[in-house]
Amino acid sequence: MANIQYYDVILKPVITEKSMNAMAEKKYTFLVHPEANKSMIKEAVERMFEGTKVASVNTMNMDGKKKRRGMVVGKTAKTKKAIVKLTEDSKDIEIFAGL
Score class of each variant (00 low, 15 high):
residue 1 M to S: 15
residue 3 N to I: 14
residue 4 I to F: 10
residue 6 Y to C: 12
residue 6 Y to T: 13
residue 7 Y to K: 15
residue 7 Y to R: 15
residue 9 V to G: 11
residue 10 I to F: 05
residue 11 L to R: 13
residue 11 L to M: 14
residue 14 V to K: 11
residue 14 V to L: 15
residue 15 I to E: 08
residue 19 S to K: 06
residue 20 M to Q: 15
residue 24 A to K: 13
residue 25 E to F: 06
residue 26 K to T: 12
residue 26 K to A: 09
residue 26 K to L: 09
residue 26 K to W: 08
residue 27 K to S: 06
residue 27 K to F: 01
residue 27 K to E: 13
residue 29 T to D: 04
residue 29 T to R: 02
residue 30 F to Q: 05
residue 32 V to Y: 03
residue 32 V to F: 02
residue 33 H to D: 13
residue 34 P to H: 05
residue 38 K to S: 09
residue 38 K to G: 09
residue 40 M to G: 06
residue 41 I to Y: 01
residue 41 I to C: 02
residue 42 K to H: 04
residue 43 E to R: 04
residue 44 A to F: 02
residue 46 E to W: 00
residue 46 E to M: 03
residue 47 R to Q: 10
residue 48 M to E: 10
residue 49 F to C: 02
residue 52 T to W: 00
residue 55 A to I: 09
residue 57 V to I: 08
residue 58 N to A: 04
residue 62 M to F: 05
residue 62 M to R: 02
residue 62 M to V: 11
residue 63 D to S: 05
residue 64 G to E: 02
residue 65 K to Q: 08
residue 66 K to N: 03
residue 70 G to H: 01
residue 71 M to H: 12
residue 71 M to W: 08
residue 72 V to M: 00
residue 73 V to K: 04
residue 73 V to E: 12
residue 77 A to K: 08
residue 77 A to R: 07
residue 77 A to C: 02
residue 78 K to G: 00
residue 79 T to H: 02
residue 79 T to F: 02
residue 81 K to R: 10
residue 82 A to H: 00
residue 82 A to K: 05
residue 83 I to R: 06
residue 83 I to A: 04
residue 83 I to K: 07
residue 85 K to T: 15
residue 85 K to S: 12
residue 86 L to Q: 10
residue 86 L to H: 05
residue 87 T to I: 07
residue 87 T to L: 03
residue 90 S to K: 00
residue 90 S to N: 01
residue 91 K to S: 14
residue 92 D to Y: 05
residue 93 I to E: 04
residue 94 E to I: 15
residue 95 I to R: 03
residue 98 G to L: 07
residue 99 L to T: 14
